[in-house]
Nucleic acid binder design. Structure first.
Lengths: 247, 247
DNA sequence: TTGCACGGTTGACATGGATCAAACCCGTCT
DNA sequence: AGACGGGTTTGATCCATGTCAACCGTGCAA
């Protein structure tokens, strides 16, 4: 059966996806819900999409109708200016939500691209609003998630506004490490899913600067880098880089 | 009657404040509500606080229990790093909401300071959640407001990550102009409420750089600056500065 | 009225990161 | 196996913005 051009780029698998037995439920939307409440959430979240590396989950300008919970994989979001400049606004991993920016004016305001083969749960937003009018816990948790996104963005603004290159990269690595840990992965060893250029775009730096900072950290014994493979050797050392911001 | 030290710094006036006859209702939370729904919102928003110039509406770390709608005046929000660095994360004016960042972990994550004598409406958050479980329009509008904040933050990240000094300042001025216009003020002439240092902090620049950029714009006939008084003479010119980002 | 304090402006100079360019590494295709 | 291409590393140089310092303007207090 032929697929339309639009659908072709992401294959939709209508697999019954249950929050109730998802191991990410404590990181994700169902956090704090009772069994019975979770069952009601399950009714609404029943489509899972697979997105292959490099494909868009959504694009800026497309009508907004759903948010997405990442079940597995890794994404970036970015915004584009008319003159071609773009900036990565975030990297998202399992258990995190994508698409919250689209609520504001019924259209997505950024692009979401998979950086590795990924799976997301499709959450129709108006049905989520309906359900969260009935389940207070869900309502409150959703508000917390949105608020957390605002706080995170303030952190990035701080980083972009006041930190120098090496501080930014240290903050970035520590943040990744901490999020991997929360998902049960090694806090000290991981593969970067994004290029130096994407890291640079996120951190407001050029790719060469990112590369040099990696090399510098390696020379100082803080990390071991081998292309995309990172081993963090000295977490306190990285933290220290963030604190003494002169030289 | 003596006031406690905590209360002393902001004088609370328990004046009946009605959204229903507030001229900011179309910019603010009541947007889109029917008369009857607005009356229910009125029941919940019945305390107005006056905050004098320089005083804090709230501070980072304080327990969160309310959000605030600005009735009149002008605020800045800023975050502080342990090592003393701080950054202004936004400037807020009448009709805008303050405190959304506090939802995420029951504590405010930034400081909100009045830049001129101001008045805010006090909106107990749990009561707002209760009401928005009953009024779909309110619920949806509140979600839009939070989402808009996220989109705004992405814009600031873009600005901090990719723009040069003069582009940032042009973007800043155009944004202010546009928000003043939306509130019925002149789009071309206004007084800045913040210092050069605060502008710089927001834009990720030093105050001297901000000052030089103002002077440069003046030389080029784009604006007329006289200390805090700004007159915008050439809006297309400012827009153009933002677009050609090389030299 | 004078003087002080705070914010703003301007200049001279220093520097972190951008830019430009070459070479390298690694996986993939032929 | 060889060649190609995307991503990365490293070096040399440049420039926008930071830093430091002097001075100015305005409003408030004595």
């Amino acid at each position: 059966m032929p697929l339309s051009p639009v659908v072709k780029e992401i294959s939709i698998a209508v697999i019954k996806t249950a929050c109730s037995n998802c191991n990410l439920r404590e990181l994700c939307l169902p956090f704090g819900l009772s069994e019975e409440e979770m069952a009601r959430l399950d009714e609404l979240i029943n489509v899972r999409k697979r997105i292959k590396r490099g494909e868009h989950l959504y694009r800026a300008g497309q009508p907004f109708e759903s948010i997405y919970a990442i079940r597995s994989g890794f994404f970036k979001t970015d915004v584009l200016l008319e003159d071609g400049r773009d900036q990565v606004t975030g990297f998202q991993m399992a258990g995190e939500l994508l698409g919250l920016d689209g609520i504001s004016n019924e259209h997505h305001s950024c692009n979401a691209v998979a950086l590795e083969d990924s799976e997301v749960c499709h959450i129709p937003f108006s049905r989520l609003e309906n359900l969260s009018r009935e389940i207070q816990t869900l309502q409150h948790h959703f508000h917390k998630v949105m608020s957390r996104e605002i706080v995170r963005d303030h952190g990035v603004m701080m980083l972009l506004g006041t930190m120098r290159a090496e501080e930014r990269l240290a903050a970035f690595l520590l943040n990744l490490s901490q999020r991997f840990t929360a998902r049960g992965f090694s806090h000290a060893e991981f593969n970067l899913r994004m290029t130096r250029e994407e890291i640079g775009s996120y951190l407001g730096l050029k790719l060469e600067t990112v590369s040099r900072a990696f090399s510098r950290f390696q020379e100082e014994g803080l990390i071991a880098v081998q292309q995309k493979h990172i081993r963090i050797l000295n977490i306190p050392g990285l933290k220290q880089i963030m604190s003494h911001h002169n030289h």
